[in-house]
Design a binder for these strands. Structure first.
Lengths: 209, 209
DNA sequence: ATTATCTATAGATCTATAGATAATGC
DNA sequence: ATTATCTATAGATCTATAGATAATGC
């Protein structure tokens, strides 16, 4: 099988040899794409740049993916999926007050956005993402936003809001969370934990007024 | 002179004739670039696409600008300049309480970000903007952020904060304001005025806790 | 035999320049 | 004569495919 490298590999050796990363080729491509897409952008990154950074020649990439789009689609979904899983958990657990669950969702979301070396959240800022091609991502993101809406509505203060007011608050909170991507982009040093706590506090202050 | 069109124009006529826009050619180019950069992105927009949308052939663009970069640089600065002018005014006027000035800055900023048909704020999201080439933009943006910091510090609650706490709050408020770009991008219908007021309220709640 | 990679390349761009042309101005 | 535009194009990409090659596996 050769799942994770280890011994000798079948197939022609790579031209540019490097210390074995321990990753499978597809994962190497995803990692390379994450680095390049987040820093230079999607359109500005060529297939050659991705492949070469992953340690293979441009054409070899097509053995693993159909093109750049597939890489971006997969990276995007991997950004939201963990937040969404946690949000579903929180929605189901009504032993905990809604404010507390909302606070936890905000904090976790911010931590996930700031975690990892490549500011994956910044992928969401790419203009290409608005394309229909990434409908899958938009669907999961919409579901996440709806989880925010439900938690806000279940809050004492949120229960009193008219529908349009509730949606306004949801947009504000969701905007605050996603705004973190921008802060993190220009201030990458800020320690993630404290920032996440402060953002969650801020979200509750916005909601509870 | 022929400043704004009107009579006959000197020079070879354009190949594709259209109803006179009333704009000068350079302004036509900037408008076209704004439309395309905000929707498709910078790298994905060719000089041909910009020129053709402005009503001229690709090569003719070079009579007015040195290339795409110049267009983006000019558009970017035009995004922050009005906010910055207003922020300076507010900083100078100490007849008004700091909270009120902060509130006004937030509201105006959000309104400016949501005004206009092309979500010019979205330009700031483009990955290319991080480049040194746009240092001018970064300088004015930093000055705007510093105005926020000063106003927050002048607030009753802000006066009590340690330096690092003050900076955290500033980042949160600035992030909330810039997060508006993202909300506006996915929810362009939301009426700007009410949203701006609500965002300014939220900013004060974040600050005053 | 199977597989992962390679080299080579066709066809489609895209940018920036060179030089021609069709107006007005004098 | 001056000017704004045009057409044409060289040179530099970039994507995706075709076909060769160098490993292991049996």
């Amino acid at each position: 099988m050769g799942t994770t490298g280890g011994g000798r590999r079948v197939g022609r050796p790579r031209a540019a040899q490097r210390p074995d990363s321990g990753l499978e080729p597809r994962a190497e491509l995803l990692l390379a794409a994450a680095e390049l897409f987040t820093t230079r952008g999607y359109a500005a990154t060529s297939t050659r740049a991705v492949a070469e950074r992953a340690g293979m020649r441009q054409a070899s990439m097509y053995h693993y993916v159909s093109g750049k789009e597939e890489l971006l689609a997969e990276l995007l979904e991997s950004t939201v999926t963990p937040s969404l899983a946690y949000a579903r958990e929180l929605l189901a657990d009504d032993t905990v007050p809604a404010e507390v669950r909302l606070w936890r969702l905000c904090r976790t979301d911010v931590e996930l956005l700031c975690a990892g070396p490549h500011n994956l959240g910044a992928l969401y800022l790419l203009p290409e993402v608005r394309t229909e091609r990434f409908a899958g991502f938009h669907a999961v993101r919409a579901e996440l936003k709806d989880a925010y809406r439900q938690l806000i509505a279940a809050t004492p203060a949120g229960g009193l809001l008219a529908k349009s007011e509730l949606e306004l608050r949801t947009d504000l909170v969701f905007g605050l969370i996603e705004g973190v991507i921008l802060v993190h982009r220009s201030e990458p040093e800020r320690p993630a934990r404290a920032f996440a706590d402060a953002t969650a506090d801020a979200a509750l202050r916005i909601t509870g007024g």
